[in-house]
Nucleic acid binder design. Structure first.
Lengths: 119, 119
DNA sequence: CTTGAATCTGACACTGATGTCAAGTTTTAG
DNA sequence: CTAAAACTTGACATCAGTGTCAGATTCAAG
């Protein structure tokens, strides 16, 4: 599929999809004229990438991580090196803390919302 | 307490504490010489502010929210206007989606980490 | 062939909290 | 009194993904 359709189906802008490519996160075949041609699996991949960005991972980290993830197309997965495992563990712990923070913030908002509904 | 101690106790930089003040998030008495003098409750407040920043709320939103939160010192709390409740509800829903995303990312990382431990 | 939609590359701007540095003032300890 | 530490304001930089615009090219349909 071409970039417009991928953008529409993932909700990610064309600009961002091109940026992902420069960062080595996403590859695409090219038509004879130079237009990008994505495989169906790109949809899932882009969604994953977005999730990881939302989790605060940087491009460089996602680049390392992607080949180790079991893909939707069941492609051959690499195995993380000990060094990478260490880094990913740190990321995971950071995400856990982030989740805890978010839960507290959500509860705070709910308190205020509830107080207003009753007041 | 002065800004250095507040920074140390909250883990937030002095730079950020001053920024919070310019945004109307944090007030401080001043010594005759002009140095900031924070009440004990500032510690909790700063922690809350940090959490809300981490949840993706902007200064302007936190400014609206703060007076509606029940403070640690049990100060008089304002009640959110209907308009604010609407905005806060949207924020809460966004946070809920963010949490869901984070959980997925964490699970992804755990999968890779586990695969490496066994591989 | 023609025309309009889609895509290409490249460049520049922005966001918004935070880092950092500079020059000057206040506070505190000896 | 004095020196060091802490604090002040102000300005500029940074990050990293994303928005946006311009000009050129390709694609698809009539």
């Amino acid at each position: 599929m071409r970039i417009g359709e991928l953008a529409r189906r993932t909700g990610v802008s064309e600009r961002s999809l091109r940026y992902y490519e420069t960062q080595g996160l996403l590859r695409a075949e090219r038509t004879p004229g130079g237009h990008r041609d994505y495989p169906e699996a790109a949809v899932d991949r882009v969604v994953r990438i977005q999730e990881l960005f939302a989790a605060g991972l940087h491009s460089s980290r996602i680049v390392q991580l992607l080949p180790c993830m079991r893909d939707t197309d069941g492609g051959p997965s690499a195995v993380a090196t000990p060094r990478l495992v260490e880094d990913l563990t740190a990321e995971r712990d950071r995400i856990d803390r982030m989740i805890a923070d978010l839960v507290r913030s959500r509860d705070t908002l709910n308190e205020v919302i509830e107080a207003a509904r009753q007041g």
